[in-house]
Structure formats: C-alpha cells, structure tokens
Design a protein around this nucleic acid. Structure first.
Lengths: 361, 361
DNA sequence: TGTTGGCACTCTTTTCTTTCGAGTGCTAAT
DNA sequence: ATTAGCACTCGAAAGAAAAGAGTGCCAACA
C-alpha cells in the first residue's frame, strides 16, 4: 500500500510537530501548519486512516496523534528532508573536532563526548577491531631494574609499559629479548602466543630470571585489549533533558544500561560501508532496554579494513534528521583521520545515506 | 555548649534512622529503637532542644525531625561509630581492585568506577601533579617516514606517540635528535621549553625538515597534560537512586556539574596527609551546585610527593560511615600501588582518621 | 465523491475539598 | 525530671468537580 501524497505530508507534519513538542498533535495544529489547503475535518479523516494503517497512534481516544515506530520508520526512509547543515555549522563541528583531536588523548572517546554535546543526547562510540597483531616490539633499557616495553600494533597504535623488576637485569639480556620478541611475536594474533612460544623464547634468550614471561604477559594483554571491541559512552545525563525520561526510574534503567557499555547493536550489524548511517527505531532494537528508544549510528573507517561506529541514543521522538547530519560529519572526520585516506575532504558535504531496518521482521 | 550523653544518643539515632529511611523521624520511633529507657514524651522534649540548638530541623511543625548540616557535622565528628568493614568485605574490595588493576588501563579511572560501584554514589578521582619533568626521551626509528616518541616522566608514567612525516628522515637524524632531546629536554618543566631551546636543538641536530618542532610540540603536550590536574567521574547516574534526586532537574543539574569534571574541592584543600578522610557537608561545599550535597574524600599517596583524591558525592543524608570506610580501603590500595611504598600492607585495617571543616565559617 | 462546519462526546488535566493520620506541644500528674 | 494524655497542626492521599483539547460523525455542500 502506498500512501497518497497528502497522507505523506500529514504524516511528516505529525512527526515534525511531535518531535518538536513531545505532545500528541491534533488536527487543527496540522491544518494550521502544513500548508495543504484543507480543513481540520479533512485532516481528521486522513489521520483516522493513518492510525488504522499503523503509522500513528493515540494515547487515548480524545487525544492527538503520535507516530508509531512504523510511522517513524516511514518518516526516516522516505519523508524526512535529509538535513544538510549549513556551511557554518559544518565548519564549527570540524573546528571543534580538530581542537579536541589536537590533544594526545583518546580520539574516539573525545569524539563520543563531542557527539553528545552536539546532539544533546547520550553518545557512544564503538570500535571493533579485526585481528590485531604486533608490528614492532622495542624494549628500552632504563636501569638495572627498569625497562620500558613499547609495542606498535598493526593498527598503528602504540602501547607502552614501564616494568620494574625486583631483580637486576643486564642490558645485554634486554637487547636479546628485544630482538627475539621483535622476530617471534610480530605478525601473530593473540591465540598464537602459546606457552610453547614463550618457553622457547625464554630459552633462546638465556633468561633465568623470568623476564620473558613478564614481557609476554604484556604482549598478550595488549593483543587482548586491542582485539576487544571497546565502547565509550558519554553524556548519559543528557537523557534527563528528554521529557520521556522524566521518570527517574526509567532514566536510570537506560543510563545504567548505557554506562555498562551496554550493547546496542543488532547482532547482524556487520558494520556497513563507512559513511552510511543506520537508524534503529524503538522495537527494532534488540536490547530489551532499548525497545522504546532509538539509536542513530554512523560508521567510520578506522583504517586497516576496520570499521567503528559512533552513535547517539534517545527517545524514539528524536530529531533524526539533525542527528544524522551531525553524526555524518563526525564520522567523516574520524575516517579522514584514522582511515585509509580516501575519505572525502573536510569541506565537502558528503551524501547522507540513511539506512535502517527494512521494517519487516 | 556540650551535649548531654542522652542528647548525643538521640541525635545519633535521628541521623541513623533518617539516613536509612530518608523520612523525618518521630519521637516514637526513637524511643522504640535507641535503647534508652525513657518514653517518647521525654524524647520530644530533648528533640525540641536539639532543634533550638540547631542540630535538627523540622520540615513543618507537625513532622518528625531531620538533621541539619550542623547535626551531620556533629554526627560525623563525634557520634558516628567509625565503621570497620569486616575482613571479608575488605578482602572483597581488595580483590576487585586487584582484578581491575591487572589490566593496563588507567588505574585512577578504574578505581573511580570501583568506588562508585561499592558505594552506589557517583564517584570522582582527582590527581594533582606537582611539577612534572621528563626523565628520559627515546625516539624509535620505524621507517623513513615514521618514528615513535617515547617519553618517561618523573612520575614514572610513560607516554608515546607515533609520528608520520610527509618527508623522509634518515636514521642518523633521528638518533641525533633522540640524544639531543635526552640531554636538553630532561629534568625541565613545561615553561622551560622555550622557542630558544627548540631552535638551538634544531640547529644542533642539523635538522632542516622541521622534525625538531614536531618532537618539541609533543614534549610540551606531554608536560602540559601531565601537570594538569585531571578528574575522572563515574556513576553519575547512581544519583537517581537517591530519593532526594528524584526531581530530574535537580539530578540533571548536579550530574551535569559532575560530568563537567566539576570542581568540588574547597580552594584551601591542600591535599592532606594520605590516609585522611575529609567530609564536606552541604553548605560547607564551595561550589554552589554542591551546597545541598555532601562529599567524602580520601587522600592517597601518588608517589613523588604527590597526592590524589578519591571521593564520592551524594545527598547530605549519606551513609558517611560506610562510605568513609570503603574509600579508606581504596585510597590505601592506591597508595600501595602508586605511592612511595610505606603504605600499610593490604590486610591491615588502617585507622580511619576523619576530618572535616571545623564547622565555624 | 471528497470536503467542510458543527456539535455531542470522551478522556485527561487541573483545581478545589475533604479526610486521614503522624507527630507535635503543652499540661497536669507522678 | 519523667510521663500519660489530649488538642492541635499540617501535609499527604483521596475524591469530586470543572475545564479543555481533540475526536468521531453527521449533514450539508461543491
């Protein structure tokens, strides 16, 4: 069934208005606002049909209409104007992103914070790493009891650890170990770090003091951590700005879920093409806690064939258009910095491809 | 004016009960609970006096009593039983702390999260660093366009950065720079990194490609960041568990303040002796946003003559005793790991020294 | 056939009263 | 100094009434 042009306009008007006010919207308001030249009575008839088609609902018989998840889905897929931020806004966002990223801190978590600030919803950033390996292994000798392990990973991040030993080691041993690890532990994934490998390294280095196992433990730790997807959530408290979360218990439930690094993505979410935006509306979410919230997620290219996601969570009554536009810019910025480099240049407004569930279960 | 023994018992009972129930407590309840052999009428008289002395207040004439900040202060300073956790609880906390700290992540923020979990209040962790200097400077040559800077600071943390250059550098230059930075940039604080120093280093290294300034920029960045006090806040959402924050606006205000890394400490808060616990009750806080909340802070020894703080924020109706005990253990754990090493061993219950404002402005 | 004004009806929200009860303050007795 | 007793206060809860927004539907109209 395809909707008449007028029904579409009305549906869009209901969503727009409801998003703005958080109140069920009545026929009069629509007649006044949407510039279709007909009276509220006509609109009432149309509204009644939209309800029976499942796009709208009423909290009770004598109230206005509000969109159902299906209504939002229609809106997102077909009706909404893909908002493009003005050049100024785009530049403002890029400016703030650059400013953040100049510092040496964790890029991803900073961008998550920024996303939350920009949208005024809680934001989350996820990284899923493909198998990570060690690219380079260095050990810096500091003094007889101290050395620094420096590990460069295949995704070009660098990790280090200062090790203080209860025993003295000589510089020679450290050099030997450095060389051995550099040849033996590079290019392999976590599960290839076997006790066997560690033992043979220990023997080859002629290490009688157990230094090898300390270093190996660090290697395992780094690989494990780097391979684990990580999530950063920020701005949970902004949920309280939304009228649908004025109930502290409800807010607390969702915030708790989010702070726990809650898991948000549908299991089928093989991260899409970078640049795409995914919208999950209400019951389309898999997590029980999100069944009456919506999630908008942008995918970015984290280089090394890896993708990450940055998204926000809010009530289903969400300003999908604005959020999508902002996330798109942030994701593009991240791709530009982390990714292979074929991302569009900063100034360019890239096409907003918004995808969602098909809507049929 | 010193309180009679009985008044003290009654005051303590009021606080205990009010903390437990969050409801004003009546004379009957006290008569039933506190085992002092007298009737509710007698207690009413005493209560009336405690009100006129300023320790208690009534929301309205015919309601029970609740403690004023001054009442809490008295309770914290003199009345409350310094709670000691059972050995099991202590061990449980230490176990969880060890578990957390095994991972290579940021110790401080992890402990902050742990503090929040244990107390069910929002927690914050602060570090204030004394002047930090660079202790050691290494540059690892990766390939013609890439090297890794590794910097070890006076507080024994290690920072690194991967640098990718648009131009090629040869290994010799990198080695020269490494040596020069190691001699010229160690032992100095941020403000000693002058353009002059950078220039002379550049000339000495015979660097025509501006590599020096990249490295110097990193040095400045690291020193700046390390010297800046940092704050980690976690579990803001737990505020919503407290009945006094059922009003979403109130909760939001405070949560926003906290997430902003809000600043909590009285300006005079030269961090005290490690091991001490400080309690700030309601209006004793300087920040306007905290005037009707309380803060409990434990100081830990972060080594290198530096102290940090870990604390929680909650309503004035807070379980001071339990919170203080838990924070004390966490702070001791941190001191043991970060500090000079003269911290008490893990098993030992260390004395709880609870200090607060004197109460007189 | 689609559109419109009109109007009775429904159901929530708000406001006002009433009732209820916990807890007090005071007095008189012990 | 303590206690029992009792009238009184004041908020919270419950109930009743009024207000208002918006609908559904009908009859009239283009």
């Amino acid at each position: 069934m395809v909707l008449s042009e007028r029904k579409k306009k009305i549906l869009a008007a209901v969503v727009d208005e409801y998003v703005r006010t958080a109140e069920p919207v009545g026929s009069k308001a629509i007649a006044a606002k949407a510039g279709l030249g007909c009276s509220s009575a006509t609109i009432r008839n149309e509204l009644a049909e939209l309800v029976s088609l499942g796009y709208l609902e009423q909290p009770h018989t004598s109230a206005g209409r509000m969109p159902t998840p299906m209504g939002y889905r229609m809106y997102v897929n077909e009706l909404m104007e893909k908002q493009r931020l003005s050049l100024e806004e785009t530049e403002e966002i890029n400016r703030r992103m650059n400013q953040k990223l100049r510092e040496l801190d964790d890029t991803i978590s900073d961008v998550s914070r920024l996303a939350s600030q920009l949208t005024d919803y809680p934001a989350l950033a996820l990284t899923t790493r493909t198998a990570v390996t060690i690219k380079r292994f260095d050990i810096i000798y500091v003094d007889a009891n101290t050395f620094i392990i420096v590990v460069m990973l295949s995704d070009n991040t660098v990790k280090n650890k200062l090790v203080k030993l209860p025993v003295s080691v000589d510089q020679k041993l450290v050099q030997r170990l450095s060389a051995l690890f550099n040849s033996g532990f590079t290019g392999i994934t976590e599960d290839a770090v076997t006790p066997l490998l560690i033992n043979s390294t220990e023997r080859a280095a002629d290490d009688t003091m157990g230094v090898t196992s300390v270093i190996a433990a660090f290697a395992i730790e780094v690989l494990t951590e780097a391979a684990a997807p990580s999530a950063y959530v920020s701005g949970e408290n902004r949920l309280l700005n939304q009228p649908e979360f004025r109930d502290p218990d409800k807010a607390h439930r969702l915030m708790g879920y989010l702070s726990g690094g809650g898991y948000i993505l549908p299991p089928n979410a093989n991260m899409d093409e970078a640049g795409e935006i995914k919208v999950l509306i209400g019951p389309e979410n898999v997590a029980e806690e999100l069944k009456d919230s919506s999630v908008v997620i942008a995918t970015y290219d984290a280089g090394d064939n890896t993708r990450g996601m940055i998204g926000v969570v809010g009530p289903t009554r969400m300003d999908y258009s604005a959020v999508a536009a902002k996330l798109s810019i942030l994701a593009a910025g991240l791709s530009r910095r982390l990714g292979g480099g074929e991302a569009p240049p900063e100034g360019m407004h890239n096409k907003l491809i918004i995808k969602g569930d098909t809507g049929n279960e």
